[in-house]
Design a protein around this nucleic acid. Structure first.
Lengths: 267, 267
DNA sequence: CGGCAACTTGACGTTGATCAAGCCATGTGG
DNA sequence: CCACATGGCTTGATCAACGTCAAGTTGCCG
């Protein structure tokens, strides 16, 4: 979960595996859950797109918006959030590099939530029409996109359990475990350390807590040597400890590991 | 939200509109969000299936199960739930008549949660292969199924906001409002009164509260004349009051109202 | 170096959890 | 038709987790 600007080792690693241009990380992400022939991968890499850079906290999508373009996150972290009538904010999803940010817009044309980058972000924008054409021509691509949506749903369900039934400490640890697994997945190798790019305010909005209480949990997890505070930033350095605190199981992430190497034959 | 056995007026109303056999209510549900030609509707109604009756609290699906059949709920109420390591239960979705219970299984073959009927339930089971064949042949049906999945995702997100950021009273009121809208939708007309088929224990599992505290909220909402206690059962009788307590907006349900009458032309 | 935003800490309040006891509907068997 | 058993509801007393408020402190960027 390193700041997007920093181009850290695991990012570099990924790019070197198989270069399919800027969308390469997106294709790799899909490959983790769905088989795609090399022609499928090539077709995806040739999707027309432009690339934009976004500053943190600039709105990417607003409730009620109608959308004609599918944004794909290449670098940085983005969140979906909703606000209650009394102004309370809840972050309902965290998106990491390689993930499509708004596949639903292809089917449901008005957004029911807002979205903004948490770190500086780089986003590729693919016209929905092109994406739909490709999905219509290539069923395995359509399938891969749907699986992506379904896994996001599975994550929401786990978050419901997390917020509804786990106490602050375990809840926090669980979020860090999930983020670790998701990042390791796009990286293609287990990440050893990573820095959490969220402010304590944002962590509070994810976890359904107040910033003050998040701060207390940060201290608690530090004292248990599960995380470390590097200046103003949190570093996850002891996954074993975190996993046992959270009683974490990653079943719900539905990782299947379709390695690119094993997928080089045509459909 | 009347007990499934009772065959109440709004159920009857629905069946009389356009009789496409047992799956009729499912087709109507899809029509609420997606246009389907009468040929599409006919094709759906001819899906091979068997019909089973389920007693409450019998497991329908277990975490880790692999599935070959898509269950469609015809009568009664079913919930998805997850359990934490310490035994805490969280209901992560409520399914009402007309909804497909496990479309994800067509794409992600192991379940990440459990499912059981809350009331006696009637379920049609369609072989996944048949459903996939139909979706492949008829894009508008594929689309309708995906929209269904996406709306369930939107509901999860709203629940995250509900549990994460609203206090017990508002949270409870919000759940009742949502249920009202969803039931009215399949019914095809606004339902005036309905009875909540959940025990206070189950309400607690939905809301991330304890049964004791749910009970206190039941009393509070009764005192505000938003709901009534009929013996052991809750009756929602004053939607206006509930809507203002919850500050409810149904935007996230993505209702578009493709009336069956306006969809009689072929694609 | 100055200013700002984020973090930190302590004191105190409140919501909702826990525990425990009693009550009331509903269904069953005599 | 009544007795009684059972599961769910109700209630009060007490307690802990988390929220609120307010006043610092610290890292960070220009």
């Amino acid at each position: 979960m390193t700041e997007s600007g920093e181009n850290t080792s695991w990012m570099e690693y990924h790019r070197s595996v198989m270069d399919l241009g800027p969308l390469s990380i997106f294709i790799r992400k899909l490959l983790n859950r769905s088989p795609l022939s090399s022609n499928d991968q090539l077709a995806l890499s040739r999707l027309p797109h432009d690339i934009i850079h976004l500053a943190p906290d600039t709105n990417l999508l607003c409730e009620g918006d109608r959308v004609t373009v599918c944004p794909i996150l290449l670098e940085g972290f983005v969140c979906r959030y909703k606000v209650a009538a009394d102004g309370g904010r809840q972050i309902v999803a965290l998106k990491i590099p390689g993930e499509a940010l708004d596949l639903q817009s292809a089917y449901v044309h008005t957004a029911d939530h807002d979205m903004y980058p948490i770190t500086p972000a780089v986003v590729a924008r693919v016209p929905l029409t092109e994406l739909e054409k490709l999905a219509a021509e290539r069923p395995s691509i359509a399938r891969a996109l749907i699986v992506d949506v379904l896994v996001e749903g599975a994550i929401s369900r786990e978050w419901l359990l997390n917020i509804g039934r786990r106490n602050a400490e375990v809840r926090f640890a669980h979020l860090l475990c999930e983020t670790f697994y998701r990042i390791s997945e796009v990286a293609g190798l287990p990440v050893t350390d990573f820095d959490v790019p969220l402010t304590q305010q944002q962590l509070a909005d994810v976890l359904g807590l107040t910033p003050v209480h998040v701060n207390r949990m940060v201290r608690r997890l530090s004292e248990k040597h599960a995380i470390r505070r590097m200046g103003r930033r949190l570093r996850v350095s002891n996954m074993t400890r975190l996993l046992e605190i959270a009683h974490y199981s990653d079943l719900y992430l539905h990782r299947t590991g379709h390695e690119p190497s094993s997928m080089l034959d045509e459909q």
